[in-house]
Structures are given as C-alpha cells and as structure tokens.
C-alpha cells in the first residue's frame, strides 16, 4: 500500500468521523443529506459483498466494516433518533436519487468486466459512488449557513477521491499489469464533481469567511 492510498483512506475515515461527531455532539443533522448517506449505504453493500467471499487483509476488512457500520448508524440516527430526526432538512433534501440509481445500474449491466451478479453489483457501486455526493452538494447550495463540520466533511471526502487518483498513478507506474479503466474513469468523474465545491471551500478559508455555495 502506498502513501497516497493510505492518506486517501484516512481522509475517508476522518470524513465519516467528522460527520458522526457533528451529529452526535450537536444532536443535529442539519445540512446533512440523508439521500447521499443512503446512496453510500447502497454503494458499500454492493461493493463489499466480497467480505463473504474473499479475504484481502485485516486492514481491508476492518475498513469495510467501519464504512458499512458508520453509514448505517448515520442513516439510523437521521431516520429514527427521536432528537436528531427532527433536525433533518426534509424539505430541502429533495434530490431524486432514483435518477442516479437506475442509470448507474443499467450502465453496470452493459459496461462491466464480467457478466456475473457479483461483478455487476460491484461495477454498479463504482458508478454510483461517482455521483453519490450530488444530493449533498445540492443540499449545501440550499443551506444558507453551512456549518464548518459539514463543509469539512465534504472537503475530506473530496480529498479522499483526489488522493485515490494519485494512488492510481503511483500504482500504474510501479506495478506491472495494473489497470482498471472503469474505476479510473468513474474516479475522475467523481473528483470533477467536487471541483466547484473545492473552489468555494478554499476561497472561504483564505478569506476567513463562512462557506456558502452560490445557487
């Protein structure tokens, strides 16, 4: 494992910790998109089916379990926790995610490396992850007062994707036969989705202003 990959995974882990802490400490999930969290739950469930079929490393298994568990915890809080669920921006979080799920699934049926259930679901998770942040970005645009932690959450998630690209470049140069075109293209699309957010995040940070995204 190279430094970019490890740093990327750590960013991903931190992003989730930040979100858990924010919701738990403030007893509020204001500004957090339940739709994005549910999309991530679908992504993780479909991708980590190999937990049952293959063992890669203790690190790998632990991280997968953390991602699954934390995402379901957040969803549970937002849907059922008696204090937190009241703070959910239901009226603002209206992104119709079926318009993401269906095309990604159809694309995975057509464009995959092997037409088997496991492989199609895995490919579907790759495509879906690329766009899963969209409901969250739309919700941030609609939120006038983005709190720091929610902004940091999205920034950390974006950093994780950017670091994965560096990881792929590094692996491509150091490992023979290391190629995964579908993952690379989806990953680049996913990172592009964040560019606009990055621009406003860094600008607000440099100017010492509160983060807000233009509608």
């Amino acid at each position: 494992m190279n430094i970019f990959r490890l740093a990327g995974d750590m960013m991903h882990l931190f992003s989730i910790i930040v979100l858990l802490l924010k919701i738990n400490a403030t007893r509020s999930c204001r500004g957090v998109s339940l739709k994005t969290q549910e999309l991530y739950a679908i992504v993780f469930v479909c991708r980590y089916l190999d937990l049952f079929t293959s063992f890669i490393s203790l690190y790998n298994t632990t991280m997968k379990l953390i991602f699954l568990l934390s995402t379901f915890t957040i969803i549970y809080w937002m849907r059922f926790h008696k204090v937190i669920r009241v703070t959910y921006d239901r009226e603002q979080d209206t992104f119709r995610y079926q318009f993401l799920i269906l095309p990604c699934f159809l694309l995975a049926l057509v464009l995959n490396n092997e037409f088997s259930a496991m492989e199609v679901l895995w490919t579907f998770s790759i495509y879906l992850e690329a766009v899963a942040i969209l409901p969250q970005l739309v919700l941030l645009q609609r939120t006038n007062n983005i709190d720091n932690l929610t902004g940091n959450y999205v920034f950390l998630l974006g950093s994780y994707r950017a670091l994965y690209i560096l990881n792929w470049i590094y692996r491509f140069m150091t490992e023979p036969n290391y190629r995964q075109y579908l993952v690379w293209i989806s990953g680049i699309v996913q990172t592009i989705v964040y560019i606009d957010f990055f621009y406003y995040y860094i600008r607000s940070w440099r100017n010492n202003e509160k983060l807000s995204l233009p509608a």
Partner: peptide, 10 residues
Amino acid sequence: PEVKLLKDEL
C-alpha cells in the same frame, strides 16, 4: 481486461 486480484481498494 481487469484482473480480479486488483480488488484490494476500498
């Protein structure tokens, strides 16, 4: 095509 062994990323 991709090799199955490559699925070591998260």
